[in-house]
């Protein structure tokens, strides 16, 4: 792992911060990984999260936070290289493989992840989940999209509009 430049005053060892989930679980993680979150980065730069304090995250439960941190730890080295301009093709392929597998998860987890990524401002993660949901929508009819995403059944009015649309735009349903 790359030597952390932000390990100020810690004799070269990676600086660690503590994050506290909404259900009071404590996660100790390298500052470099947590800093993928724009919101956390500000707190960490201010010296927060060290020692026994910990940074409380009242909007993120422990299951989601552990998943979020899994992503951050994997992506931290590349992010430290400024988007990894000198990363090898193997590194990039490995990250891509990780990303694909990472979002191969239950929809309720995808939902919690995109909400957490949004709250914590982790751009890469938000984009990854959004892309995954877009892929789930692609090629489906409005009704199939509703079912896939667990929307309630359409109202009679919505149903009538969908039917009329299918008649008018037959080409889009072939």
């Amino acid at each position: 792992m790359a030597a952390p430049e932000s390990g100020d005053g810690n004799n070269g060892a990676a600086r660690m911060v503590t994050l506290i989930s909404s259900d009071n679980t404590r996660f100790e993680v390298e500052a470099a990984a947590a800093s993928l979150s724009q919101t956390l980065q500000l707190t960490i730069l201010d010296g927060g999260g060290g020692g026994g304090d910990g940074i409380p995250l009242p909007n993120v439960d422990s299951a989601t936070l552990s998943k979020v941190l899994e992503y951050c730890i994997k992506h931290a080295p590349a992010a430290a290289n400024g988007g990894a301009p000198n990363a090898t093709a193997v590194d990039r392929a490995e990250l891509e493989r990780f990303d694909n597998e990472f979002v191969n998860i239950d929809q309720s987890v995808l939902y919690s992840l995109i909400m957490a990524a949004h709250n914590l401002e982790i751009e890469g993660l938000q984009s990854l989940v959004a892309k995954k949901v877009a892929d789930m929508i692609k090629g489906k009819s409005p009704m199939e999209i509703r079912r896939t995403l667990g929307f309630p059944d359409p109202t009679p009015e919505e149903q009538a509009e969908m039917n009329a649309h299918m008649l008018e735009y037959g080409w889009a349903y072939e």
């Binding site: 929809q107 309720s108 939902y111 995109i114 909400m115 949004h118 938000q126 959004a130 949901v133 995403l149 667990g150 929307f151 309630p152």
Partner: peptide, 13 residues
């Protein structure tokens, strides 16, 4: 299943 995705804020949709 709870319609979680339907509750997504517009920004994320």
């Amino acid at each position: 299943m709870a319609a979680l995705m339907q509750m997504l804020m517009e920004e994320l949709v």
